[in-house]
Design a protein around this nucleic acid. Structure first.
Lengths: 226, 226
DNA sequence: GCAGAAATGACAGGAAACTGACAATGGAAT
DNA sequence: ATTCCATTGTCAGTTTCCTGTCATTTCTGC
C-alpha cells in the first residue's frame, strides 16, 4: 500500500491484516518503487496524491515491468476524467475517498481471486466442507469420509450453492424459485421442500432434527454452519 | 447488455460495436436469463433497476451457473451500501449512471483482458494410460494391449484431451463446443454425444455402463479415473 | 389443549435428456 | 468428377429425475 497519510494507512493495514493479508506500507512514490523492485507483491493499493512522485507515474512505472499485477487506485477526486486517466495507464480498479472499508476489502478480494486463477492451475475449485463431507461443485459430487460418494444433479447443486452463498441468512421460497428456476416456468414451491428433504438425507446426522438445513416457517430455509 | 431504457441501450451498444464487440440487448431480467441460457457470452453489463426481475437476482442466478464470467453493474444509485451489496453477490465492477462512456469502455476492456488471460491453459499431457490402453495425443492413436490399435481423428483427440485435462470435473457441452469447435461455428450438441458413444466403444468394458465417460444429465460429461 | 396452517417424507407419473444405430453431408485427395 | 471418410443430423427406445399428490407430523396462535 502506498499512502502518505499515516493514520489512514494504519487503519487500512490493520483491516487487511485481519483478513489474513500481509501488508507493507510505502509513504511516497519513490519509496514505493524501491519496495516494488526489492520484493514480490500480489496487489498494489495506490494513493494518487503522493509526495515525491504521484500515483499515476508510479503506476506507469510499475506497468512497464509487470503488466499483470493488480493495481487499485485510491483517490480523493471523483471526477470521471480522473478515473479515465487512471484506467488508461493501467489501473485495474478505482476507489474514491472516503470509501467504505468493506467495499475496499471486497474489491481487493475480487482482484486477487482473479489474478490467482490465472496464475495457478486455472481451475477455480469451488468446494465446501460440511461436517466430514466435502461438496465439490466442479465435480457435482459429495466426497464423503465414510461411505460412497454422492452424485449431485444440476438442480441440487444450484440450490445447494445458493443456500451456502447465503449462509446463515433466510432464503425465501420465492427467491429460490426466481434464482434457481428463474428462466422458465416455476414449479410449485413443494418441489423445493423435496430437495431439502434430500439434502437432509445426504448431510444431516439426524434428518428429522436438522442442524444445517433449517426451516423457517412461512418463509423458506436457511443454511446454518459455523 | 441488460438495460430497459432503449435509447441508452442503443447508445451503449453502438459504442461497443464501434470498438469491435458484438452486443446483444435484453430489456428485462427474465429475458436476460433466457439469453444467457441459450448462448455464450464473454461479459455482462447489467442494469440494477429492471422490470420483471432486478439486477441483483439476475446476477445471483448467473453466478450459480457460471462463477467466472465478468459482470459489470450499471446503476443510478451511488451509495456504498449498494455497491457492497453488488460486489457481495458476485459483481466484478460497478459503474454509476450517468457515466462517462470512455470509462465504461475502459472498464469493459479491463475485465475482458483479465478473463481472456485465464483461459490459456498451458500444460497438457501427451500420453495417457487408460486401463490397458495408452492414448498418444501426438501420434493420434491408441495403443492397445490386445487387439489392433485405434487411429484417432483430430476432433476425437481434442475432445478426449479436454476431458482428460479436466479429469473428474464435469465439462459442460457449452464449454466443449467453445473449446473444441471454436468460437464461430457450433454444430448441434448432439454431435458431442456421438463422440462420447465412440469413446465408450473404444475404452469401456461395458459401454452401456460406463466407468470412464460418465454422463451428467443436463450439463455434460465427466471423465473419471483413479 | 385445540384448530388450522405449514412442513415433512414417501412415492408414482411423465417430461426431458441421453443412448446408440444409422443416414446424410461435405471437404479433401486422387 | 469421384471416392473416401470424418463429421453432423435424425430418430426411436430407454433412463433419469423433476414434480405434484397425499397422508402424516409439527408448529403457531388462540
Amino acid at each position: 500500500m502506498v499512502e502518505d497519510e499515516s493514520s489512514l494507512a494504519e487503519t487500512i493495514k490493520l483491516n487487511l491484516e485481519l483478513e489474513g493479508y500481509a501488508v507493507q506500507i510505502a509513504k511516497d512514490g519513490k519509496s514505493a518503487l524501491r519496495h516494488f523492485k526489492g520484493e514480490r507483491f500480489n496487489l498494489i493499493l495506490l494513493d494518487v496524491m503522493l509526495p515525491e512522485m504521484d500515483g499515476f507515474t508510479v503506476c506507469e512505472s510499475i506497468r512497464l515491468e509487470n503488466p499483470s499485477i493488480p493495481i487499485l487506485f485510491l483517490t480523493a477526486k471523483n471526477s470521471s476524467a480522473d478515473r479515465v486517466a487512471g484506467l488508461r495507464i493501467g489501473a485495474d480498479d478505482y476507489l474514491t475517498k472516503p470509501f467504505n472499508l468493506e467495499e475496499l476489502l471486497l474489491r481487493v478480494q475480487n482482484l486477487l481471486k482473479r489474478s490467482m486463477k490465472q496464475d495457478e492451475n486455472g481451475a477455480g475449485v469451488t468446494t465446501y466442507d460440511i461436517g466430514d463431507d466435502v461438496i465439490n461443485f466442479n465435480r457435482l459430487e459429495v466426497v464423503r469420509k465414510k461411505g460412497d460418494n454422492i452424485r449431485l444433479t444440476k438442480k441440487e447443486a444450484m440450490l445447494l450453492k445458493l443456500l451456502i452463498d447465503r449462509k446463515n441468512e433466510v432464503v425465501s421460497r420465492e427467491h429460490i424459485l426466481e434464482t434457481v428456476w428463474g428462466y422458465d416456468i416455476y414449479p410449485s414451491t413443494r418441489t423445493i421442500d423435496n430437495f431439502i428433504v434430500s439434502f437432509r438425507k445426504y448431510f444431516e446426522k439426524d434428518p428429522s432434527n436438522p442442524q444445517y438445513f433449517q426451516s423457517v416457517r412461512g418463509v423458506g430455509y436457511k443454511f446454518v454452519d459455523a
